[in-house]
Design a binder for these strands. Sequence first.
DNA 1: GATTTTTTGGTTATTTATATCAAAAAAATT
DNA 2: AATTTTTTTGATATAAATAACCAAAAAATC
Lengths: 157, 157
Amino acid sequence: MIATKFDPHDIAILRLLQREGRISINDLAERVGLSPSPVARRLRILEEAGIVTGYAALIDEAALGYEFSVFVSVKLDRQVDDALARFESAIRSFPEVVDCWLMTGNRDYLLRVATRGLADFERFLTGTFTKIPGVASIESSIPLRRVKAGLARTLDS
Amino acid sequence: MIATKFDPHDIAILRLLQREGRISINDLAERVGLSPSPVARRLRILEEAGIVTGYAALIDEAALGYEFSVFVSVKLDRQVDDALARFESAIRSFPEVVDCWLMTGNRDYLLRVATRGLADFERFLTGTFTKIPGVASIESSIPLRRVKAGLARTLDS
DNA sequence: GATTTTTTGGTTATTTATATCAAAAAAATT
DNA sequence: AATTTTTTTGATATAAATAACCAAAAAATC
């Protein structure tokens, strides 16, 4: 099932929903220059085709107290499928791990961990993270500030 | 204006909205065990207090063709405010840059760039990115696969 | 150029959101 | 401990949005 090509109306719909995920169909329709019916139908198709995978409320991490992020790069003992799968399964179960990528190069994973502060981070690292079997070494980098907060590529240009 | 403390109802509302950003107030109410009115009011307050900063449709990057991400770490010539501000302003204007952090340590910025492929990435790098004044050196790391896709810390635990 | 297919936009029934207010619950005061 | 005050809730009514249907228009195909 190859995704059929999007026309400019679809792009306009996606672009608006990327920034205003709770906008009404009526408002959407007005701003893309169509009537509500076709917009609702197009959106339903985009959802069913898996282009729009969901909707999320954006919540201020700092307001919740999770303003302290750390980038952690990880090296595993062995890089066989089994070891990767076990590591990834653990990662997915930790709410502290916000984002995680399998990397090329000399490090195996890059992830971002969000906690309430250095103390919480240490607790997570020593109490939980390093207990994952197969973790050979980790390297932490601490950001000062987020410059641009992205979910996915925006349809801006 | 300090954010007033959240009670369990607020947490439940935020948790659901984090995963189902377009859920109706009625459904929300049913699932948090309140009637619609107080849920609507609580949500409005959370929005006005800046806890909920917005809503976004989650769009499959791959379906749009932007399946190729690169992590780029950047070092600037100088680290004076002026240089940082100019760099960050440029970064914010590039839709290719999905995410960007100001870092401690020997590198100044860490960012993720999403493009259609290696060719597009090279075009962006040589044609756009390296033209930003003050960029001294860059280092690219290529991920194989995203293991966990995060927006922000989830309220799972 | 006629026919088929796709897309649109109007209509209506149903669902959802918003504003208001009285009752209940919680907190504060005496 | 009882009363007052404040806060939160839930019901109701009104307005708005959504979803399903269908005929008309546009686009594509032959």
